[in-house]
Nucleic acid binder design. Structure first.
Length: 269
DNA sequence: TACAATGTTTTAAG
DNA sequence: CCTTAAAACATTGT
């Protein structure tokens, strides 16, 4: 489910627990979600510590606890975070539950593609500090993006936008939304996007990410009809710009929705 | 039944 | 060493 806007929404769900102590921890040891950490350490050190702060960076989240403890969470395809009542019964796919005095902080993930990490250190962990510049930061520059597109010049632009090493937080629906707004066919080789077309793409990458966060992060709001978002999963979907049919096909290994009447090859412009 | 799902990592080939 | 494409991971819903 989650791309950068949804990740920010889920991060805020645990704000209810900020400044409060963890009284009890329950986790499903067999869950694949714990493949990147030692579940025993979570059980040993988290009870008694306080949740201090949290941050999101693309699809990654980092929760800081007192006592030099850091928990990283990636939601994968179906992960979610929620805060529930203390008497809330555990759901089938609740793989981690942190019980506090007045609520429980729950991590749920049916497909278990998500990942929990755990570090003990005075500093944030290396994996966090090594993340690439965020799309909405000043360090996310045109030259960084154009170099990346040229390096991946033979791959479709759709596949390239999904690469987290340069576009942290972009996922399948954001990538389609960006290419639709920039009027670029998703099959287009990344190396062919230059000049004014490149400028359009760069602008839309940032605009779509910013607007998506504004709409979704506060209360899971839905984008308006004018976005591709609401039309992309419908059978026989219609492009809100042209009124003509949308098509769905696999590009860059993912189901891609695009508008043939609207999105073009750069050479056509 | 078979396939696809808002993701990443591993593997293999060029 | 680098780029590119495909398979694998686990579960649910159509």
């Amino acid at each position: 489910m989650p791309e950068l806007a949804e990740v920010e929404y889920f991060r805020r769900q645990w704000d209810a627990g900020l400044g409060k102590k963890i009284l009890k921890i329950q986790l499903n040891r067999k869950s694949r979600n714990f493949r990147s950490c030692d579940a025993n350490l979570l059980k040993r050190f988290l009870p008694g510590s306080k949740l201090i702060t949290s941050q999101a960076h693309g699809k990654q989240m980092l929760f800081r606890f007192s006592g030099d403890l850091w928990m990283g969470i990636h939601l994968g395809m179906t992960g979610s975070l929620s805060a529930t009542n203390v008497d809330h019964a555990a759901g089938k796919h609740d793989h981690l539950t942190l019980t506090q005095k007045t609520q429980r902080l729950v991590f749920n993930d049916p497909r278990q593609f998500g990942a929990i990490r755990f570090n003990r250190d005075a500093e944030p962990p290396d994996w966090w500090r090594g993340l690439p510049p965020e799309i909405l930061s000043d360090d996310f520059t045109k030259s960084l993006v154009s170099e990346f597109l040229n390096r991946r010049k033979k791959s479709s632009i759709k596949a390239v936008l999904l690469m987290q090493e340069r576009f942290p937080g972009i996922g399948n629906w954001l990538a389609d939304e960006i290419l639709w707004r920039a009027r670029i066919r998703p099959h287009c080789p990344a190396g062919q996007i230059k000049g004014i077309k490149f400028t359009h793409l760069f602008t839309e990458i940032r605009s779509v990410c910013r607007e998506a966060i504004e709409m979704i992060a506060p209360d899971w709001g839905e984008p308006p009809e004018s976005w591709l978002f609401l039309h992309r999963w419908k059978e026989n979907g219609i492009c809100p710009r042209t009124g003509k049919p949308l098509v769905r096909e696999t590009i860059g290994g993912r189901t891609t929705c695009w508008s043939p009447a609207w999105q073009r090859w750069p050479k056509d412009l």
